[in-house]
Write a protein that binds this DNA or RNA. Structure first.
Lengths: 188, 188, 188, 188
DNA sequence: TATGAATGAGTGTTCATTCAT
DNA sequence: TATGAATGAACACTCATTCAT
């Protein structure tokens, strides 16, 4: 594993431990027992490091989802698969997950603007599942796909954090419960 | 309104604008056109100021909930009232809500521990509603009250932020949709 | 003398000794045996400190010139008085003079623009003397007032530096020589 | 053109653009699209690079002067030729000229001593012209050759910068004016 | 109560230099 | 020759906190 990856990993671990607002480049250097210059050599600015961290996570998550999600069946099955895959990935990437959430929610420019503006594309796949279930498959009741998508994501994110923080340990149980919640609230 | 309250309000407004990690005591002083010493006189440390801000918010929220929530009817009605009251309060306290979320998620001690540990009591009223509906009223299906409570809170919190950030404007619509989601997923 | 003035003076002395490009805020603090924070407390940015230094010098120079320059006589006398006053002031403010020249010529923004753009107003009084001598008094020959003004200033500045660096010590002699040069080259 | 010359040229261009104090070895490397190591390979230290830059300029200037200056005539003609040649060279080497001035004035050792101490030999040719005009040719009035030499140089340097910065564009005009100034002030 | 001064640790960033390859 | 990695010191600037007045 190259220096860059080591720096990225150390960053995620650090942020998970001490929180984004206590995190600093110097502390990464310290954790890796190298000089601060090493970090800025590989990532000239703090923002670039954070972006690299986030990007790497999303790439891995996308790859995982691509491999594990089934999209060939009914809307309901697809949603269940989405919930399951996401929570499985989180379960296998606890530290990363906490760190990424912290980074995204809290990175700001000096002027106060969020560095990672809310990524609305995250709701898109869910919205499509819902529209398909409502308009084509007609298995879903009438509801706002946007609000439902936001709800699903928020529950998933909340459970993710709880899992990552090990407040919840029975991961299969959570998956089943969440699936049931959204089955009941979407199906006719 | 006394100095303390003015400081607290300015703090919330500032955090909403520039984010917790850009926030500093000096900037509050600046915003109020007083010297930094005034802040540290009333709140000897930064943590104490933050705690005062959070406490004030929760007190007001509790008072509001106490006035507006109906708890005399069925589990289902009580839950609906809970959702409605919470979102109404958020809608009337947008700036505060964003700030509080930011503070709670990001305040850490120098050692990295969260200053406001996750307050599990927040789930308690919901859990009680669910247990009542399952065990006494028997109108609710079988599900984990803890996971359901966490789900409801996460959806409420997510919608709160969206409302506070004005990504969502039709507040009555949201309330109706969220109520429906949890009606369907809890009732037998 | 207040802290601010002490900081300004120490800055000028330091720049004279080690040069603008070796100068740093930390070194001022060191020279004054105070913490670095003291400097940034009084002058929040380096630029502000430099501007304060330059401003103070120019105010003092203007005050001195106001007191010592005679402008009631002929163009030739006025020019001679200008040369004399300027060089006298320099002679009494050697350290300052070297420092100011260094600051003005070398202060740049991060983007490379000069912080103190060339101040063309410095040529104005000279240009007016020359125009008066040419058009009203008709004692001056025909020449470009702008180029002549630039020439006078450059000779004065050059002698100033030489005096400040003590490469030249007989100040009365220099004044006489410079006055003669520009008498001969301006008068008909 | 060899690597060394390319590095020297890029250095001069960079310094002209961003100023000596913003200049760094890394930026030269960047501008040339090579690694920083290339620079330090050819010029082990920054000082050596700067010295090479200055030396090259002076060699070229000397060569130009050697070719273009007429020294076979009267003191007055020789001085006029000196002024003309110098300003012509500057006019054809604007970028270099600005850069060199910046380097010479600002290069310092870590201890603060000037890297390029004032080169008094620069006054020598002028002093000789003046002495010749005063003592042999007897066409010059009585004045201090040293101060006159310093005056001529300062005016030339000032006009050079103005030309290089394109504050002055009519170069023939400047030459004529400067020549006239020093003709009037030297001749009996 | 309020101010202004001071401290000292910490931040991100830049950079000349060294060195193994 | 050239590269890329690494170092360590320096830089301007921010900030919570302390304290005399």
């Amino acid at each position: 594993m190259g220096r860059k990856d080591k720096i990225i990993d150390a960053t995620m671990e650090l942020i998970t431990q001490i929180g984004f607002s206590n995190f600093s480049i110097g502390k990464v250097a310290n954790a890796l027992n190298v000089s601060k210059g090493v970090i800025t050599y590989h990532f000239p600015t703090k923002d670039l490091l954070l972006k690299a961290v986030v990007t790497k996570y999303y790439e891995e998550a996308a790859a995982y989802m691509g491999q594990h999600m089934r999209i060939d069946k009914s809307a309901c099955d697809t949603l269940n698969s989405y919930i399951e895959s996401t929570l499985f990935f989180v379960n296998e990437n606890k530290v990363r997950t906490v760190a990424i959430a912290d980074i995204i929610l809290n990175s700001r420019t000096k002027e106060g603007e969020m560095l990672f503006k809310e990524d609305k594309t995250i709701y898109q796949p869910l919205i499509e599942i819902f529209k398909y279930g409502q308009e084509i498959e007609k298995s879903y009741r009438d509801f706002s796909p946007e609000i439902m998508a936001r709800s699903v994501r928020s529950v998933i994110d909340s459970m993710s954090l709880a899992i990552a923080r090990e407040e919840i340990t029975d991961i299969d149980d959570v998956i089943r419960e969440v699936q049931k919640i959204f089955e009941s609230s979407t199906l006719k």
